[in-house]
């Protein structure tokens, strides 16, 4: 049990980094502001334009980044542990693709990138994963069966999305591609409440499921021996994971790769005996916030979607950890 203090130290350091990045997100940007101005602005005093920038543009965006990072980190770990497969991110299980298809369909139906799109994305994530569970159910289900049916559904949804993109005009296709990459640009307070409630409810739920998760990771028979109600546990874990990923996807699009990356980094940071849910969530938050900071400041003419940068920021860390841990 040497992992325990190591986990606590890692969580503390990651939490501190996430907070620091959050502060930087609010301070740095194209609208020039000093630290005292930002501090005063947060309490509502200052130039009206500055107040808008701080409270209506940067703060909600930073919060959305923090929350989706946690949600993808925790949700990704749930899926990987459930399927006992490091490649089993929500991207391959159909949750993300379901959310994508519904969201892109809403976008192309002319509803734009507003809250309607987010609601539909959540609905899509839940609908498709319910279908996946339903189709893989035959006197109970297994991790591998969920994953394989998930692949099929993901491909089906992906082809529908592609079809919609081809049928759309270039303008809409471009907007859809931005959505499909994942972006925090233009997130306002409207995106925060649903996401915050989801994270506040589902992350503790995931932590409460941690024991079952650890049991399932050892294999179905061992889990049963440990007294885990296998089928019920699978459904519960699936439901929590789908909830986290759907709400996060709805808020910012599928921020590629965080769900796959964060759990792997977390595992290699703390060498846990149980799935490191908290660590994974915090790694996710740090990766998303750091990536967004780079995305906003790298180009002078515009900004990159955060989903583009998570691959470039996160993948080298994973590859480095991979290469190192195998030595």
């Amino acid at each position: 049990m040497t992992a325990r203090p190591r986990t606590i130290v890692a969580c503390f350091l990651l939490g501190a980094s996430a907070f620091l990045l959050l502060c930087l997100e609010i301070t740095i940007g194209d609208f020039p502001l000093t630290v005292p101005e930002v501090a005063a602005g947060l309490f509502g005093s200052g130039d009206p334009a500055a107040l808008l920038v701080i409270n209506e543009i940067r703060l909600p965006r930073a919060l959305v980044g923090l929350l989706i990072g946690i949600a993808f980190g925790v949700g990704g770990l749930l899926f990987q542990a459930l399927a006992r497969n490091p490649l089993a991110s929500p991207d391959v299980i159909g949750v993300t693709d379901g959310a994508n298809t519904f969201a892109v369909a809403t976008l192309l139906a002319g509803a734009g990138t507003g809250l309607g799109m987010s609601t539909m994305a959540v609905l899509g994530g839940f609908t498709v994963s319910a279908i996946v569970v339903g189709l893989s159910w035959k006197q109970g289900t297994t991790g591998i069966r969920i994953v394989l049916v998930g692949i099929g559904m993901a491909a089906l949804c992906g082809s529908i999305t592609d079809y919609l993109l081809l049928k759309s005009g270039a303008f809409q296709a471009q907007q859809a591609v931005v959505w499909l990459t994942g972006s925090l640009s233009g997130r306002t307070w409207g995106s925060v409440p649903a996401l915050a409630v989801a994270v506040a409810l589902l992350v503790p739920a995931a932590l409460a499921l941690g024991k079952w998760l650890a049991g399932l990771e050892l294999g179905e028979d061992t889990a049963r021996g440990l007294g885990v109600p296998v089928q019920g546990a699978r459904l519960a874990i699936m439901a929590v994971g789908v909830g986290l990923v759907s709400f996060a996807t709805a808020a910012a699009g599928p921020v590629a790769f965080v769900a796959l990356l964060a759990p792997q980094i977390a595992r290699r940071l703390v060498h846990p005996s149980v799935p490191p849910l908290m660590t994974s969530g915090l790694v996710g938050a740090v990766v998303v916030l750091a990536a967004d900071l780079v995305a906003r400041t790298l180009l002078s003419s515009g900004e990159l979607p955060v989903g583009v940068v998570t691959g470039v920021v996160g993948a080298p860390v994973l590859l480095w950890l991979l290469a190192r841990s195998f030595r």
């Binding site: 490649l87 790769f257 990356l261 691959g311 470039v312």
Partner: peptide, 28 residues
Amino acid sequence: KLALAGAGVTAMIGSLTTSVLLADAATL
């Protein structure tokens, strides 16, 4: 290791591709 290294490299290259594409509608 093959699977994870593959996923990591694929994601990284994919990100680079997307960033080029987003910067340039014509290529996109």
